[in-house]
């Protein structure tokens, strides 16, 4: 029988893989994809608890999370396009303008 805990474990694994990707990858585009992965893991949590509690508020907030994810993707990809115009690279190690 599938319980909420199964979904939480799946969400945990997806979230961890997203964090690992952000830390490990140096390609800006892949890092953005990992952020999408993390937001999706948050959505799995929202839906799992909405299902367990029989309350639709979690589903409403999943809609908001998806909206924010779309806005974040648009901004991030806009930054990538501007970055490639200025620096001709998407490697995060080569764009440490702010000494990060």
């Amino acid at each position: 029988m599938i319980t909420t805990s199964h979904y939480l474990v799946l969400s945990l694994v997806l979230f961890s893989l997203g964090i690992v990707g952000i830390v490990v990858r140096r390609n800006f585009i892949t890092v953005l994809m990992c952020v999408e992965l993390i937001l999706n893991a948050a959505n799995v949590n929202f839906i799992a608890f909405a299902h367990q509690l029989g309350d639709l508020t979690g589903q409403v907030f999943a809609v908001f999370v998806i909206t924010i994810a779309a806005a974040e993707a648009a901004i991030g990809l806009g930054i990538i396009v501007a970055l490639v115009r200025l620096k001709r690279t998407v490697n995060l190690d080569q764009v440490s303008v702010m000494e990060g």
Partner: peptide
């Protein structure tokens, strides 16, 4: 999580 999954009854709302 795996331990909690086996030790708790599942919810099944309508």
């Amino acid at each position: 999580g795996a331990w909690a999954a086996t030790s708790r009854p599942p919810a099944d709302p309508a």
